[in-house]
Structure formats: structure tokens, C-alpha cells
Amino acid sequence: MDVTQAVNQRISTRAYLDKQITEAEIRDWLTTAQRAPSGGNLQPWRVIVVTGDEKQKVIDLAQQKLAGNPRGEPTDRPIYPKDLWEPHEARRRRVGEMMYETLEIPREDKAGRIQWFARNYRFFDAPVGVFFVIDERMGHGQWAHTGMYMQTLALLAEERGWGTCFQECWGILRPTLKEHFQLGETEMLYCGMALGYPDPDHPVNALRAERADLSEFAELKGFQKA
């Protein structure tokens, strides 16, 4: 597999096979991704990987907390900016509708949509859950570098036949997870990731989110006309 193929086939995998990934495979995957770009070589990321009973503890904790308050806990770092503007809001809504159309869950079936969304907090039944941690004192550059490490992991997962789904939704449980994982005083959880072997027969894994045309986001200047 080349990089272009990995980029093209990567999706947010939301259904997984009951097939385990070994600790040795996880260690190799994380280590290989360490070649991701890192400004000043700070390597500002920290990773917590859970499976088995440790993953179940996180799932149980999420269910307990969200049963009391489905909106989660207060955060000064929301998943999306308040009053998201166009064209970004339209894109966000469109991909959500595409997913529910693929799953044949109509808009009026609010219970069905809520039930599906709750699968986020079970890692979509993936065998492995990954959490990314960053120090709150880091700047925007280090957040970007952490994202580069995360993307590198996603592409390496494709090479290995695995699927991933980045899950910023875990951000609504930051205080609880900070305590659960006994993070340092200035550390915070950024987001999670579901990891495992994709279920090729589940319809949700046929979803490919639309992407903007090049003309919407890129300017190419100074090139000679052909």
C-alpha cells in the first residue's frame, strides 16, 4: 500500500469485527508513528490505550456520567466553535445526514439517532480505545503537531488493515477522564480514537464524507499557464 491509497481509503470507521489487536502490534504502531512531524521536536503528545477490562471501565464510566447529564461536563474547549459559520456548518450537518441516511434512521426517529450516537461512548464496539493527552500549557502549534501524530497513526492503521475513528466527543467528559486516568495537573484529554478491524458488511462503513472542491479552499499563484 502506498500513502495515496491509505489517504484515499481512510474513513471514520464506525463498525468493527470481533477481532483483537495484540499489545506487540500496538507498540509497533505507536513507535512507527513517532516519525510524525514535530516542531522543535517537542513531541507534545501522550497516548493512553485501553482494551479489555480497562476499556470497559471507561465505557461504564461514560454511561454513568452521561445518564445524569447527556450534554456532559463543562469545558472551555468545545468541540466546535459557538455559532459555527458557513460553509462549515452546512458541511457538518450534511455529513450527519449522510450517515443517518446510510443507516436508514430518519430524522423523525430521534430515539434511534440518539441510540446510534451513544455508540460513540462504546468506541463503536472496537476492541481498542485510544486517548490523546496534551499539556494545557502547550500552544496552538503543539496542538497541530499532535494532530499530525494522530493522522500518522490513522494512515499506519490503514496499512495494517485496521480502521480508526477519531472521537472528539470524549471531550465532554474531560474532568471525569482526567481523574480516571490520573493525569498530571496541567494535562488534559484532547480526544479519543476507536481502533480495530473494520466490519466490511456494515452499511455505515460504506459512508464516504464529501470533501470540498479544490477551488473552494486553495489559491495557486505564480504558475506558468500550460
Rank of each mutant, 00 (worst) to 15 (best):
D2M: 03
D2K: 09
V7P: 10
Q9I: 15
R10N: 09
R10C: 08
T13N: 02
R14C: 04
R14L: 06
A15F: 04
D18G: 00
D18M: 10
D18I: 14
T22A: 10
T22W: 13
E23R: 14
E23F: 08
A24N: 11
I26C: 05
I26Y: 04
L30P: 01
T31M: 08
Q34L: 12
Q34I: 04
P37W: 02
S38F: 13
G39K: 11
N41H: 11
L42K: 11
L42M: 14
Q43A: 07
P44S: 10
P44W: 06
P44Q: 09
R46I: 00
R46P: 00
R46F: 00
D53E: 15
Q56E: 15
K57G: 10
K57R: 13
V58D: 01
I59M: 00
L61V: 06
L61F: 12
L61C: 11
L61H: 05
Q64N: 10
Q64A: 13
K65W: 08
G68W: 00
G72K: 01
G72C: 06
P74K: 05
T75M: 03
R77S: 13
E86I: 11
H88M: 12
H88T: 11
R93P: 01
R93S: 11
V95K: 07
M98G: 05
M99N: 04
L103I: 11
L103P: 03
L103G: 05
E104A: 15
I105L: 04
E108H: 13
E108G: 07
K110D: 02
A111V: 15
G112V: 15
I114K: 10
Q115V: 08
Q115A: 15
Q115C: 01
W116S: 05
N120L: 02
R122A: 10
R122S: 14
F124R: 00
P127W: 14
G129C: 08
V130F: 10
V130G: 00
F132N: 02
I134D: 03
E136K: 10
M138T: 05
M138S: 05
Q142F: 01
Q142R: 12
A144K: 10
G147L: 12
G147C: 09
M150S: 04
Q151R: 04
T152K: 03
L153M: 14
L153T: 04
L153C: 03
A154E: 11
L155K: 08
A157R: 05
A157Y: 09
E158M: 14
R160W: 08
G163Y: 10
T164S: 02
T164M: 05
C165K: 02
C165W: 01
F166A: 01
Q167I: 13
C169A: 15
I172R: 01
L173E: 06
P175G: 07
T176W: 04
T176Y: 02
H180Q: 10
F181K: 01
Q182S: 14
L183D: 02
T186V: 04
M188S: 10
L189A: 01
Y190K: 03
M193N: 02
A194F: 08
A194Q: 03
H202C: 03
H202Y: 08
P203E: 09
V204G: 07
N205P: 13
A206G: 12
R208L: 09
A209D: 06
A212R: 11
A212E: 14
D213T: 15
E219D: 12
L220Q: 04
L220W: 08
K221F: 05
Q224H: 05
K225W: 13
K225H: 12
K225Q: 12
